[in-house]
């Protein structure tokens, strides 16, 4: 008797993704939808999509979604969660959104220990606007605003937002993962599951930073983009549990 062992998760609408070939966003969307289904929280989860490529996340998740202005995901999610403390609230943000224009909102939400989960997608560039330098762009990495590659003296060095957040007292669980290989995708799903569980247990702020390929703006094939994450991106942003105070 043949069984279906892999299919579209319940909370992911059957809509074709608008993302470029090989983009990590939709892998992350799917993992989140799987976790939401497995934890049985689809009917009480409220998502906050960002400005950026993932703004259209609301077209794919079959749950309540409220769009945030650029960078304000953590503040908006705070407002939702404080009014509905028994719901599960997540904010989904890119690197420019969370680590440049929304740094203040993110740090203070973490520091207050807001009981929300943040999914931070790090693809080391501004994807939607066409590949400009992001706060996470690697030194030497080309972008449309760093001719000749990002230069520390001229452009500043990449920012370790997750590590910065870890020193806030309200942050409970912070992990950096990637979606560039089967192994890393499985680890990412585990990390997302743990982050949601932290929130369900009311422990405080959780954040998963996910290294994600952007083949279009990196000007690489999707397979090469995944290799580049292994070989280069992880040198700057090593995969690890950055903070775990879940006891």
């Amino acid at each position: 008797m043949e069984k279906v062992v892999f299919k579209r998760p319940k909370y992911m609408k059957k809509a074709p993704f608008h993302y470029c070939p090989g983009c990590g966003h939709s892998i992350i969307h799917r993992l989140m939808a799987e976790v939401i289904e497995e934890l049985g929280i689809g009917e009480k989860t409220i998502g906050v999509p960002p400005a950026g490529c993932a703004v259209l996340a609301y077209d794919y998740f079959d749950i309540d979604m409220g769009e945030a202005p650029h960078g304000r995901g953590a503040a908006l999610a705070t407002g939702v969660k404080r009014i509905l403390p028994d719901r599960i609230v997540f904010s989904y943000q890119g690197d420019g959104d969370i680590a440049a224009i929304g740094t203040a909102e993110t740090i203070h939400a973490a520091n207050r220990g807001e009981n929300i989960t943040v999914i931070f997608v790090n693809n080391s560039c501004y994807g939607m606007t066409g590949g400009q330098m992001a706060p996470t762009t690697l030194l030497g990495q080309n972008s449309t605003t760093t001719p000749g590659g990002r230069d520390k003296d001229r452009d500043g060095a990449p920012i370790d937002l997750s590590e910065m957040l870890a020193i806030t007292r309200g942050a409970v669980y912070i992990e950096r993962t990637a979606v560039n290989s089967i192994k890393n995708i499985r680890k990412t799903k585990k990390a997302i599951t743990k982050a949601f569980k932290v929130q369900m247990a009311g422990l405080g702020f959780s954040l998963i930073e996910i290294l994600s390929p952007c083949p279009t703006n990196w000007k690489m094939s999707p397979v090469d983009a995944c290799k580049w994450i292994d070989e280069d991106v992880m040198q700057t942003f090593p995969l690890k549990v950055i903070k775990d105070e879940t006891g």
């Binding site: 008797m1 043949e2 069984k3 279906v4 062992v5 892999f6 299919k7 579209r8 992911m12 074709p16 993704f17 993302y19 070939p21 090989g22 983009c23 990590g24 966003h25 939709s26 892998i27 799917r30 290989s181 089967i182 995708i185 499985r186």
Partner: peptide, 20 residues
């Protein structure tokens, strides 16, 4: 073997896997 690795990494949920 229906290991599903192709489906796990597919960014477009374009693959369904059956086993048995």
């Amino acid at each position: 073997t229906g290991c599903a690795m192709c489906a796990v990494i597919c960014p477009d949920i374009a693959i369904e896997v059956y086993r048995g």
